[in-house]
Design a protein around this nucleic acid. Sequence first.
DNA 1: TCTGGGGTCCTAGGACCC
DNA 2: TCTGGGGTCCTAGGACCC
Length: 461
Amino acid sequence: MAPGAGRAQPRSVSGRWVLHLDMDAFFASVEQLTRPTLTGRAVLVGGTGPRGVVAGASYESRVHGARSAMPMSRARRLVPGAVVLPPRLAVYRAVSERVFAIVRELGGAIEQVAFDEAFVEPVELTGAGPEQVEAAAQELRARIREATGLAASVGAGSGKQLAKIASTLAKPDGVRVVPHGTERELLDPLPVRKLWGVGPVAETTLHRVGVDTIGALAALRPAEVTTLLGTAIGTELHRLAQGIDHRPVAERGEAKQVSAETTFDADLSDLDSVHRAVAEMTEHAHRRLIAAGRAARTVTVKIRGADFATRSRSETSATASTELAALAGAARRLTESALPPSGVRLIGVSLSGLTDYVQEQLFDTVSPPHAHAEPAAARPDPTAQPDGAGSAPDPPGRAGRGWRAGDDVSHAVHGHGWVQGCGHGRVTVRFETRRSGPGPVRTLAADDPELSAADPLASLD
DNA sequence: TCTGGGGTCCTAGGACCC
DNA sequence: TCTGGGGTCCTAGGACCC
């Protein structure tokens, strides 16, 4: 008798409810929140350079076809009136922390997947009915909206996969609960690409053998799936397609790798620039390594050439190091063997094989006399932002020279604002924050002594 | 229309050890 | 004189996620 004959119900853990919370158009919504003139307008957040990519698109710009991961140049053509802004990760992180503080109040396990996304398995929902789950989800959304002013969508089901699919169906600004026992009804007709873990390659592979829907994937024999997709992934995806998903909701552990990479506006063609860039990326990654209180055994250099092919070279030493000189030396040694035949488009440095370490000396000179028992340096805060990317105000010296659209500024008279545009020695600033509501625009001399760079977080209040 | 930056996990081959 | 078998670690590449 074939296993699964008679199309057995998914053997869900009885009464289990997993919620997936997903903030709506998160990056763009935070921009609209903290820069109120943008509310209702098409906003694109992402790289503003020639090779930039969209990281967030407001619903007003999605109407015209703009999407995350799309080249910014293309999105700009699709949405000519869009306001294009560089990401302000520090602000998104701060909002994210407020959101998940509220989610934590539900109790039970939380698994944060991204700034704007998490699985939750609230204890008090075990054994609940769909109506009760729906009410809890609505309540959660209302609390988030009240505390942050932002819309979240929530999906609920018997496992993570179902919850995740449900939250995308709930968008925008909604709730979708998939009652136990109705999993296959929902999954079967969906395109196979909707499964978490099926990307462009797996999709093509499955299409080639005529498998277009999740139901069709579920109907294959296990051996067929593993032949097509590999043992580990194939086995897992086949189970998920059948609605079987017992994966626990679990807190993420410590990072296993820290990396920094950059894509150049124009390809590099001389070795000196390449070495300089590798050194810079190593320093960047190293800063975050130290901030996280960790040491690394393995250094990996990644270089992408003009042909877009990626080469990586790595070196592992016997002991983990926190020494910049040692890590940078390894990176430099690895660089030349990873050079592409043509120009260099991207350089990345990754530090892995991470271990905790105790910072011994760093604070001796600044510690108060009685701080000898202070162990804080050895206990990295996993939620702390290692490098504070974007959180620190720009270094002095920016004022009067290179304002860029999207910069946060402060003016002695007009208060907090953001740069809408600049050029010809002038800078146009919109003076507003979340609290102020839509504010006035002023054009000032770029070197106005009363104008200075400001902490982006000030726009939240 | 050319394709970011930060991650996680899987695969496959080879070295090395017992 | 002929090809073991299991296990771990390292390296390189790639798929996938947001």
